[in-house]
């Protein structure tokens, strides 16, 4: 398999600019095309906007970058097909936290003329925001740990750390016991062993449903330190952007398949929207309108990323909201 990412001195990494590749996958494999800025977008990023074209800057992680599906099946690309005269600049970066997505925005997007900034926060991203390190696979399929940039909140101010992040892998053993807590695992460490056990016996979904799986307790309280950083990043990002912002929490499958209670994260994102005045779109209610069988088909058999059906459902949920927002903007309803 080809190397897909290269080192980036601020964000930590990005796709290799100009890359065209096919990634083997349980879904049959998918095609990726990377633009000359190092993002998985069919378009090269141009500062100026053509007259009559509406442009959305889309940020997110692998769910937005489209792990598991070819570019054309992603919800961002589907929006372009559904909404006339729309350009979506997809800045989705797999494995990235909201902190790195914000850094990508600052590095590459601030000068780009646009009508709307769409920040798609995969709910689990909060763990990455809290992390200072992250595991990756090397060419031999071994897990290696790399440093990532991160923010600290000091007296209400976001301080960027670990920039430039170290290029070389870090041995976990070389980290202090305290620092080891900041290795982002991406998933749910407390329940990891249980999940492993029930996965082995094939009862994972059932077990999660039975216990109304608490996926990300970081959202339980507005005072949670991880959430505070996340919120600060989102607020700074939204407030610094001159155009309208649409904030969209992307629910992991556990919520889509009703194995968990989403109210905690929903409350937190409402708080951000209320504090910043940005628009909020929660696609979960729309997704829940599909039958459970259909919703199960929104993710792959083993990989939890969105299938083409999942992306299509998300695009269907977003389209009327986005269309109205863009029309209103054109007519000067919003600033």
């Amino acid at each position: 398999m080809r190397q897909s990412f290269e080192y980036h001195p601020v964000i930590g990494y990005r796709f290799i600019p100009g890359l065209k590749a096919r990634i083997p996958h349980e879904g049959g494999g998918y095609l990726i095309r990377v633009n000359d800025c190092g993002f998985r977008c069919e378009r090269n990023f141009i500062t100026e906007k053509k007259p009559g074209i509406r442009r959305v800057l889309l940020f997110g992680d692998s769910f937005t970058a489209g792990d598991g599906v070819s570019n054309k099946y992603r919800y961002g690309d589907l929006l372009e097909k559904k909404i006339p005269n729309l350009e979506v600049y997809n800045f989705g970066l797999p494995g990235a936290g909201t902190d790195q997505q914000y850094l990508a925005y600052k590095e590459y997007a601030t000068g780009i003329k646009h009508d709307l900034l769409l920040i798609a926060v995969q709910v689990e991203n909060i763990r990455r925001v809290a992390g200072h390190y992250r595991y990756w696979l090397n060419e031999r399929g071994e897990q290696v740990c790399y440093a990532k940039p991160y923010y600290e909140l000091v007296d209400g101010t976001l301080i960027l750390r670990n920039v430039p992040p170290r290029k070389e892998p870090i041995h976990e053993a070389d980290l202090s016991k305290e620092e080891r807590k900041f290795i982002a695992v991406g998933r749910f460490p407390k329940l990891k062993k249980m999940v492993k056990l029930v996965t082995r016996v094939g009862l994972k979904d059932l077990a999660q449903k039975a216990i109304r799986y608490q996926l990300a307790p970081e959202y339980n309280s507005p005072d949670n330190p991880a959430w505070q950083i996340m919120r600060a990043i989102l607020e700074e990002w939204i407030n610094n952007n001159r155009q309208r912002v649409l904030l969209m929490p992307l629910p992991p499958y556990q919520y889509v398949e009703e194995m968990g209670d989403p109210s905690h994260y929903q409350a937190r994102f409402r708080e951000v929207a209320s504090a910043t005045g940005c628009m909020l779109h929660d696609p979960l209610p729309d997704l829940l309108k599909y039958s459970l069988e259909e919703r199960r088909g929104f993710r792959f058999q083993k990989d939890v990323h969105l299938t083409p059906q999942g992306h299509a459902a998300l695009a269907t949920s977003l389209t009327p909201i986005l269309e109205k927002l863009l029309d209103d903007l054109e007519q000067g309803v919003h600033k």
Partner: peptide
């Protein structure tokens, strides 16, 4: 079967 040991959240970097 192809290997399924790796979490989809661990990416190939190298």
């Amino acid at each position: 079967e192809q290997s399924e040991d790796i979490s989809p959240f661990i990416y190939v970097m190298f």
